[in-house]
Design a protein around this nucleic acid. Structure first.
Lengths: 232, 232
DNA sequence: CAGTATCCGATGCGATACTG
DNA sequence: CAGTATCGCATCGGATACTG
């Protein structure tokens, strides 16, 4: 486990030696912004990372004392968590996100979107307390997909679960959208109300859930950095 | 000129695709923090970068609209400058520097230090207005070096020049130090007064310049992030 | 001064398969 | 679930030499 540096004393260079390998910043993002703790969660959040690379990066980050690996609460599996040093990478990660949204947000293409990643992001940002107190079932149908077309979010007691098969309960609201449009909504480059009025997103089901959708449908933490949202 | 992305819509991933190549963050540091504008300045600040890699990175950054290349004022050479997008990378670079100083500052070794880079950093941070209004000549002698042992800073009219040969003027103050110690002083991991009292750094010449040294000898912008300086 | 040209070697990386 | 093992290719990166 050797870290290849740059032969420079500059603190920026020291940091760069640790965080600038391929995939590394994304793994850190998962820890810092998504609260990820497990190997397979990291795979889910980064579908294209080779498992060997992920394993190697985790070892490096552990070696650098940015994360630590330990038994989970139940003791039957492993978990990673940020150290204090790792926590303090938050400003760096957030700066990267703000900048990317502001200056590269318009580069979004079909190659950048994956239904599973989007659905987990949506789930994570769902404002459950803005939904009815009893169980709510939200169905998402990606109108342009064959596989991975249907997703269900079951919200109960302030907690959301993701299913890929019909969970059997009555569906309270269905959201129809193509994958790219719903991603744009999540990223804040298109407001959900505009998406609805333009027909990019449609809904069916209980009317009051559609009316309140912009309250319970949370968006990316970088949504406000979108150039469209600039006040200046 | 293709940028290899990660197949993710996340703004952090978009940024990572642009800035996380080897040397890239350091080149950006030179633009953002050192005010570098020229190819050879970049080489000076990054002695180990291969010229072909530097050229490729500059092209990439230009392609990404982070820097722009244009004729210098005199028109006989080329200069780079940050675009607005590039300027806004400052928070990212500074976050990297703060973190590196705080968590990796103690990893400094002999392999990380270069006299030329240090001298240019010192020159850049010299507080000329704290020096006498007339010409001041500062000699730095790296006591552990054979080559690159002597350096002169000629400060005149609020401006400092670096020489590697005796400029001929009388020397007002000479600073003797080994390369690692003076680097530590610059980085703030050792205060100059402590370095003097411990004999890591010595001076000769005009007494008033030694007495005021902690005023005119500027340090790294990350010096305060050193764990030693923590108040908490 | 500001880069190209060339070349080679390491290794990072990706793909796939497999395991306790 | 949480990774290893293997493997081969590509390409990145480093060194050196050279040029308008």
């Amino acid at each position: 486990m050797k870290i290849r540096g740059y032969g420079q004393y500059c603190p920026v260079a020291k940091t760069a030696a640790v965080v600038s390998g391929r995939w590394t910043l994304l793994i850190l993002r998962d820890f810092v912004l998504r609260g990820t703790r497990r190997y397979n969660e990291l795979k889910r959040g980064n579908p294209l990372i080779p498992p060997s690379v992920l394993a190697q990066r985790l070892k490096s980050l552990e070696y650098a004392k940015i994360i630590a690996r330990e038994r989970s609460a139940h003791g039957n599996t492993w978990e990673y968590h940020l150290t204090e040093a790792g926590e303090e990478l938050r400003p760096l990660i957030e700066a990267a996100g703000h900048w990317g949204q502001r200056w590269l947000g318009s580069t979004l293409t079909r190659n950048d979107v994956t239904p599973s990643v989007l659905m987990w992001d949506i789930k994570r940002k769902l404002r459950c307390n803005e939904l009815p107190p009893d169980r709510t079932v939200i169905c998402v149908e990606f109108t342009d997909l064959k596989r991975m077309r249907f997703w269900w979010l079951v919200v109960e007691e302030g907690n959301a679960d993701i299913c890929m098969e019909n969970p059997g309960h009555d569906v309270d609201i269905t959201i129809y959208a193509d994958l790219l449009s719903l991603t744009q909504v999540f990223l804040g480059s298109m407001s959900i109300s505009r998406a609805l009025s333009e027909g990019k997103v449609r809904t069916s089901g209980r009317r009051e859930l559609t009316k309140s959708i912009s309250r319970w449908f949370g968006v990316s933490m970088f949504a406000d950095d979108n150039p469209l949202n600039r006040t200046g």
